[in-house]
């Protein structure tokens, strides 16, 4: 086994050689996870806002479920989606297993509860501040939810990015429903797992570096965004 510093040098070299295969893998990872986060936020944020501001039967139970599902094990989600999409499963006819679409479905299910729960936490506070005004203005449920989402947008972006962090880093679900097929469903995390087991440490480490860089960039963006929001007293 070559020493660590030469692996590291090889990895950095790979990143900056703009290796086509490497960047295809990175591109697929981003496409799958960003789509999943978009869908997760599309459903999760309004759900969180409704849980934060409206009273309806089953709200308590739904909140408990969402909170419990925040930390769902990715392999279990992968397994469930696998069972749904497999040839003998209820959605087997769609033929989605081992496609990027299956991976998006799995990751959406994974991040949606997280985004919903974090959105609810953010908006509960905002709602208690606005509640009397909104009731005095006789807002409809829809007006209330949209106003909360708009005014809480910086906090909600944080929730969505937390979802992105979870999606881009998970390996269990995409491995099971994607199958880690070269050029089709191979993403950063599954490649790292595979290449490490094959002993191809340079490629694994190169992808690891990219993953870490992405998460640092995302967090830096988040930090500066929150700073701006606070300066404008919008946070």
């Amino acid at each position: 086994m070559p020493d660590l510093s030469s692996i590291f040098a090889l990895a950095v070299g790979l990143v900056f050689s703009f290796d086509a295969e490497l960047y295809a893998i990175i591109g697929l990872s981003l496409a799958v996870s960003l789509t999943a986060v978009f869908l997760g936020a599309l459903f999760g944020i309004p759900l969180g806002a409704a849980l934060a501001s409206l009273s309806f039967p089953g709200r308590g139970a739904l909140t408990a479920i969402i909170n419990a599902f925040m930390g769902l094990p990715p392999v279990v989600v992968g397994l469930v989606v696998y069972l749904m999409l497999s040839r003998s499963g209820p959605l087997g006819v769609l033929g989605l297993l081992y496609t990027p679409t299956a991976m998006i479905i799995a990751q959406t299910l994974l991040v949606m509860p997280l985004i919903a729960a974090l959105s609810r936490q953010t908006l509960v506070e905002l709602n208690s501040e606005y509640d009397e005004l909104f009731r005095s203005l006789r807002l409809t449920a829809w007006q209330r939810i949209t106003a909360l989402i708009w005014d809480g947008r910086y906090g909600l972006l944080t929730a969505a990015l937390a979802g992105f962090g979870r999606a881009i880093a998970e390996v269990g679900a995409v491995m099971i429903v994607g199958g880690n097929i070269e050029h089709v469903t191979r993403v950063m995390t599954t490649t790292i797992a595979l290449e490490t087991s094959k002993g191809n440490l340079a490629l694994a480490l190169a992808l690891g570096l990219v993953l870490i860089t992405i998460s640092i960039l995302v967090n830096a963006a988040l930090l500066s965004l929150n700073k701006t929001a606070r300066r404008l007293a919008y946070a």
């Binding site: 009397e132 005004l133 005095s136 006789r138 106003a147 005014d151 007293a233 919008y234």
Partner: peptide, 19 residues
């Protein structure tokens, strides 16, 4: 509803939107 629509309230601590 018609009566409500013609009422408005100002609170002790102004509740202002983050806008």
């Amino acid at each position: 509803a018609a009566v409500r629509a013609r009422q408005a309230m100002v609170f002790q601590r102004p509740v202002l939107l983050r806008r």
